[in-house]
């Protein structure tokens, strides 16, 4: 069989006879045409995703343009939300968004990095580590509206008594100047912290795992204890990735909506007290959009545009840091 094939091939330069009895053959015209169509369709869909992002930015900006024209910069520096008199300003929401997110970042970052350390530095057996890693990932799987429900019926009642005690004894400190009467900044920030913890843990754990083992081994060889190795070798080496994780976690906190809309209190004022109600940009959108009239929708679109600018800037910064640190770590490997 094989002999006959070779002889036909050498006798005539036309290979079509040989291909007939083999699986391999050049593509037919139809197949070539299909290939070209397939390629173009894939290109179109790839570009489509880029256009989708451009479309989101464009649409929000286009709908906000009347509000941008009529309220201008003052929109960002005043704190009124009065659809009846058509006066709008989102200073309280901008500050509230940053305040809750910074609080969440401080809490979620501290816990998140600690969890990442415990799950990457051999504190617990490999199997337990895997189980705990999955449990932390499930924290991210719980929908934020369920966290909101949990916050209303579990967290707020639990925080109320300590907030009263803190207000009574440390009321002169601005953070404790009020007591928690219902929803407020602190329960909202606490739930936010829970929600961004898995992101921070997953990314910083990866950064810690990427630290070459021999660096830690060298420190152990010099007689360092486990925590001396962590503080002087692992953390300094992985600091870029951890920082990137914190920035990305911060970005998530800024845009988180439901838990805040349910827990932050929806008050158009800003106070330093952890137990006073406040508002955030995303919560403002969630609470006002469904029943908004034409003028209010334009103002909400402006607020959405501000939220988009803030989150895109923070996320771009986070991605940039991650990109740079993965490049740097390659040199150490």
């Amino acid at each position: 069989m094989a002999d006959s094939k070779i002889s036909t091939a050498s006798a005539t330069p036309d290979l079509s006879e040989a291909f007939k009895s083999s699986v391999a053959r050049p593509p037919s015209a139809w197949q070539k045409g299909f290939d070209r169509v397939f390629k173009n369709v894939a290109y179109a869909f790839g570009i489509g995703v880029a256009l989708l992002l451009a479309g989101v930015v464009f649409e929000v900006l286009r709908n906000a343009r009347t509000a941008i024209a009529s309220y201008g910069f003052a929109f960002l520096t005043t704190s009124v939300w009065d659809p009846n008199r058509a006066q709008f300003g989102i200073l309280a929401e901008i500050v509230g968004t940053l305040y809750t997110s910074v609080l969440a970042l401080a809490l979620g970052g501290f816990f998140g990095v600690t969890v990442a350390l415990v799950l990457s530095q051999g504190f617990v057996p490999r199997r337990v580590e895997l189980v705990m890693k999955n449990v932390v990932e499930l924290l991210a799987a719980i929908p934020s509206v369920v966290y909101g429900l949990w916050g209303i019926f579990v967290l707020i009642p639990a925080v109320r008594a300590p907030s009263g005690w803190l207000n009574e004894h440390f009321g002169s400190i601005p953070f404790f100047s009020t007591r928690l009467s219902g929803p407020g900044i602190f329960p909202a920030a606490l739930v936010l912290a829970i929600m961004i913890l898995p992101t921070i843990t997953a990314i910083s754990r990866e950064a810690m795992a990427a630290v070459p083992k021999r660096l830690a081994a060298a420190a152990y060889g010099l007689g360092a204890t486990r925590w001396e190795v962590i503080f002087r070798v692992t953390l300094p080496t992985a600091i870029g990735g951890i920082f990137g994780a914190l920035v990305l976690g911060f970005g998530r906190a800024l845009g988180e909506t439901m838990a805040l809309a349910m827990l932050v209190g929806n008050a158009n004022v800003f106070g330093w007290s952890l137990f006073s109600p406040g508002n955030t940009l995303a919560a403002l959108l969630a609470n006002h959009f469904p029943e908004a009239g034409k003028v209010e929708v334009a103002a909400l679109m402006y607020a959405a545009f501000v939220l988009m600018l803030i989150t895109l800037a923070v996320n771009a910064l986070g991605s940039f840091i991650m990109l740079r640190t993965t490049r740097e770590l390659k040199g150490l490997g």
Partner: peptide, 27 residues
């Protein structure tokens, strides 16, 4: 072009979900 598309996809993962709602509302 591929780097741009990949970047757009990454930015979209970080897009606050409420902004997706705002976009669908507007369109």
């Amino acid at each position: 072009l591929a780097t741009l598309v990949r970047f757009a996809a990454k930015v979209l993962t970080g897009l606050p979900s409420i902004l997706a709602g705002v976009f669908a509302y507007a369109t």
